[in-house]
Nucleic acid binder design. Structure first.
Length: 270
DNA sequence: GAACAGGTGAAGT
DNA sequence: ACTTCACCTGTT
């Protein structure tokens, strides 16, 4: 089943290789990606004015449209950002970035794994986590493994997780899985919480600090007030925004963060 | 509150 | 080869 949709501000490479998600693989030509969320597998291909989605079941269309955040008017956000010179340039260069709406538990564990780590290795650990403890899902594009549930992970020991080679993060993964599985932390509740409350709540999990909490609030719950402050962004803020973030970021600091992150990372690497 | 340790491997030299 | 450092957090 194929579904074509038109939309502005969606660039698959910019979005899926931005470091907010870790389970999309480039397919063949380079304009296509295959990924999994929950038990849904999608092949998505970039077109000029949108994208083509291929999936098992037509009923998954709405799931994926939501995942790719098709409700948010990015053109309007970018217009709003144009009041700040640096942000305007960063946004225009990266106008195809979307903030995905990912599954909370997967996002939580993924960003716990991301701490003090590099992206290729993060992807490796998550792949091993899914292959070892997820469920096999079949699709016309090949078999994939779902992200393991909190219940499954909570049943495991640090020893069981040793094949991941996640290092000191292993005990953080287990603490998160146990708290979610036992209901000590109810991830569903966070949808209805304020940014501040959600952040404090997430930080009750060992291994979740400001940065990881902000990433989860932004990339799973779409709380765009979150402004994940990593080593790159700290430099940018120190250089351009030492007196505070610009007014025009408004309630979309998290979207601004992504534009700035990409903009400056690109330049530093060159 | 600043300094430091904590897996592992990618990237830089 | 050898060192640094990676979208960080918990503990001195």
């Amino acid at each position: 089943m194929q579904y074509y949709f038109e939309t502005s501000c969606l660039d698959l490479k910019q979005t899926l290789e931005s470091g907010q998600c870790f389970r999309w693989k480039k397919s063949g030509d380079g304009d296509s990606y295959i990924g999994i969320s929950g038990k849904h597998i999608l092949k998505i291909t970039q077109t000029d004015g949108g994208a083509v989605m291929e999936m098992n079941d037509e009923a998954e269309t709405d799931f994926w449209l939501r995942y790719f955040d098709c409700e948010t008017d990015y053109d309007s956000v970018i217009r709003q950002f144009s009041a700040d010179k640096v942000l305007k340039e960063a946004a225009e260069e990266n106008r195809g970035i979307r903030i995905l709406r990912q599954e909370p538990f997967e996002t939580l564990i993924s960003f716990i794994i991301s701490q003090n780590n590099n992206i290729p290795r993060i992807i490796g650990i998550i792949d091993r986590l899914c292959e070892n403890f997820g469920e096999k899902v079949t699709s016309p594009f090949g078999d994939m493994y779902s992200f393991p549930s909190a219940g499954k992970l909570a049943s495991l020991s640090a020893d069981d997780l040793s094949p991941l080679r996640a290092g000191f993060r292993t005990r953080y993964i287990l603490d998160a899985a146990n708290k979610v599985n036992s209901g000590t932390v109810d991830l569903e509740k966070i949808y209805g919480m304020s940014y501040d409350d959600g952040k404090a709540y997430l930080k009750t999990i060992t291994g979740v600090g400001d940065k990881v909490a902000d990433c989860v609030l932004l990339f799973a719950y779409h709380k765009t007030e979150a402004f994940p402050s990593d080593v790159w962004i700290k430099r940018v803020v120190a250089e351009y925004y030492s007196d505070g973030l610009p007014e025009c970021m408004g309630e979309y600091k998290g979207i601004a963060q992504q534009y700035l992150f990409e903009y400056f990372r690109k330049r530093t690497n060159v």
